[in-house]
């Protein structure tokens, strides 16, 4: 007997994402899902962000990694609450993993929650975690061809942070080509150039976060 299910494979994940989103919305917590290749600078950008905004906002971080507490320890060293999820080989975070650790945060007192996804430009892109915003970080040493090579990721993010721009003089990264490719794949996406190391462009990122937070509170 043939049964027509006609059901999204990620139905369960999407239900868990809705559960998360309802909770975040109730507490007006801004949730940003940060995705990139390994080594693009997600944790360093978070360190700079917490150092700059930590007094004004209560910031929490969920760290996703295959193994170790190294990233969560870096965040805790700055006085922010961090919960580490170890996926034990899994290549992405899913909404159920987030749902399991939400209780560790006092959302009523958490203004901004960053989710640092597992370093990977493929798998995390398909999973809704219940976030308000999906942000991709692309770093100069990776090369400008990553945007057209990973179209699913860059189609589903609304902001690309181009990190490590202090290395542009030494590498063949074509910024104009990256912007054109991004426009061709996701016309609505913004791009911010910054260097976490020199802090050039960091203000633009901080302004984006503050605006996102303000917009959420006004909803």
């Amino acid at each position: 007997m043939k049964i027509n299910l006609d059901t999204e494979v990620l139905t369960d994940n999407n239900a868990a994402a809705k559960f998360n989103r309802d909770l975040f919305t109730k507490h007006k917590t801004l949730v940003v899902n940060l995705m990139s290749s390994p080594g693009a600078g997600k944790t360093t950008l978070l360190e700079k962000t917490i150092a700059a905004l930590g007094k004004e906002y209560s910031i929490g971080v969920i760290e996703g990694d295959l193994a170790t507490e190294k990233d969560a320890d870096r965040i805790r060293a700055l006085g922010a609450k961090a919960v580490q999820i170890n996926t034990n080989g899994g290549c992405h975070l899913d909404a159920r993993m987030i749902a399991k650790v939400i209780d560790e945060f006092d959302l009523e007192k958490t203004d901004i929650l960053f989710i640092e996804n597992v370093g990977n430009l493929v798998c995390p892109s398909g999973y809704d975690l219940g976030q308000n915003h999906k942000v991709a970080i692309l770093s100069v040493p990776e090369g400008n061809d990553k945007i057209p090579k990973y179209p699913v990721m860059f189609r589903r993010t609304e902001l690309v942070v181009l990190n490590k721009i202090d290395l542009l003089p030494y590498l063949d990264f074509d910024v104009d080509m990256a912007i054109e490719d991004l426009k061709g794949i996701n016309p609505e996406s913004k791009l911010i150039r910054l260097s976490s190391k020199t802090e050039e462009g960091l203000d633009e990122w901080l302004t984006w976060i503050k605006e996102a937070y303000r917009n959420l509170q006004e909803q």
């Binding site: 007997m1 043939k2 049964i3 027509n4 299910l5 006609d6 059901t7 999204e8 494979v9 990620l10 398909g126 189609r155």
Partner: peptide, 14 residues
């Protein structure tokens, strides 16, 4: 895009 993002279980036979 109007097609290409689908990922579904269409049917099964049991």
């Amino acid at each position: 895009l109007i097609a290409g993002e689908t990922f579904k279980v269409q049917s099964y036979e049991g």
